[in-house]
């Protein structure tokens, strides 16, 4: 069976101009990432800000070309697909529903846009828009409004309706709940989960919120400085993280008990710079287990007890 998404050694390098007299800086936002998501599955991708999560989302969506490596969707190379075929297969849900909806169009037109692009118009278009709005739990009358008249949760429902109106196979969710109120987050998360089961969708779910990822994903990948340092089934990863970074990440989750304060995760204050990746293992300057060879030798991914880990010490 072909995987719904297969990413092979995807790399994306950005060139950042630093001034007239100095050369450009190369930022390796995504650096040799490989993974696959089976049909109907949900891969959660976690990592701190700036680790390349969103760039990876844009590579999978075909919004950015890869510098090297390739992305296969349902066995076809994404780069070879035309925009309409790609749109029928894979759709995004973005983080901020305040910037992902065009403020000057009515909700009906926003949801209809993917159909319009496919040449589906008139009655058929109106019916599918109506059906989709009801499906994501919005009253049909909302179609005549503009985004400014909607709440954050309603807007995110509109964004989900737009993503699903073409009945795609795959949805890439780039932090779909992190811009919402806590009370609304759960509703949106449950809606996404329900839609996945009912419509047989495959999700790539990007978040920095571990609880959210644990709730919705069946497999989790941890990104650090443009690489995937650990991949495993959700239960295995949360029960027994192998990579020191994953361990630190899980330890950083705040406990609900008051008075305990912020946990010390031993990552230090060093912030990783994707333009200046450390030699050897890129995590070694912040790793509390680091040894001398970590600074010299770059680790390769290995299978350890069902985890795919990129660490010399595991």
């Amino acid at each position: 069976m072909t995987a719904a998404i297969e990413v092979r050694d995807a790399t994306r390098v950005f060139r950042q101009s630093t001034g007239v007299f100095s050369g450009d800086r190369l930022i390796r936002a995504v650096d040799g990432v490989s993974f696959s998501v089976e049909s109907g599955g949900c891969l959660g991708i976690v990592g701190e800000s700036g680790c390349g999560k969103s760039t990876l989302a844009r590579l999978i969506l075909g919004l950015l070309p890869t510098t090297s490596g390739e992305v296969l969707v349902e066995g076809q190379r994404l780069a070879d697909m035309d925009r309409k075929a790609r749109a029928r297969l894979i759709q995004p849900v973005f983080q901020d529903p305040f910037s992902s909806l065009n403020p000057r169009r009515r909700i009906r037109d926003i949801v209809a846009m993917p159909l319009q692009a496919q040449g589906i118009t008139g009655r058929a278009q109106a019916d599918r828009v109506e059906e989709m709005l009801v499906r994501v739990g919005l009253p049909g009358a909302i179609g005549d409004r503009v985004p400014a008249q909607l709440s954050g949760g309603q807007r995110q429902r509109v964004a989900i309706a737009r993503a699903l109106v073409l009945r795609p196979r795959i949805v890439v969710c780039d932090e779909p709940t992190s811009a919402l109120d806590v009370s609304v987050q759960a509703q949106i998360l449950n809606l996404l989960d329900e839609l996945r089961r009912d419509l047989g969708l495959t999700y790539v779910f990007i978040s920095h919120n571990l609880a959210v990822v644990e709730h919705i994903s069946d497999r989790v990948a941890v990104m650090y400085l443009g690489r995937m340092v650990e991949q495993a089934g959700t239960d295995a990863l949360f029960a027994a993280p192998k990579h020191p970074y994953t361990q630190a990440l899980l330890a950083s989750v705040l406990t609900p008990e008051p008075g305990l304060g912020v946990p010390d995760v031993g990552l230090g204050d060093l912030y990783p710079d994707p333009a200046n990746v450390p030699p050897g293992c890129r995590f070694h300057p912040r790793c509390k287990l680091a040894q001398a060879r970590c600074a010299l030798e770059a680790p390769v991914p290995r299978e350890v007890a069902g985890h795919r880990v990129e660490c010399l010490l595991v």
Partner: peptide, 17 residues
């Protein structure tokens, strides 16, 4: 660079559109 433009690209809209 706003997300709704990215959404329009992902929806398969043409450049003139």
């Amino acid at each position: 660079n706003l997300d709704y433009i990215a959404a329009a690209w992902a929806a398969g809209c043409s450049r003139p559109y």
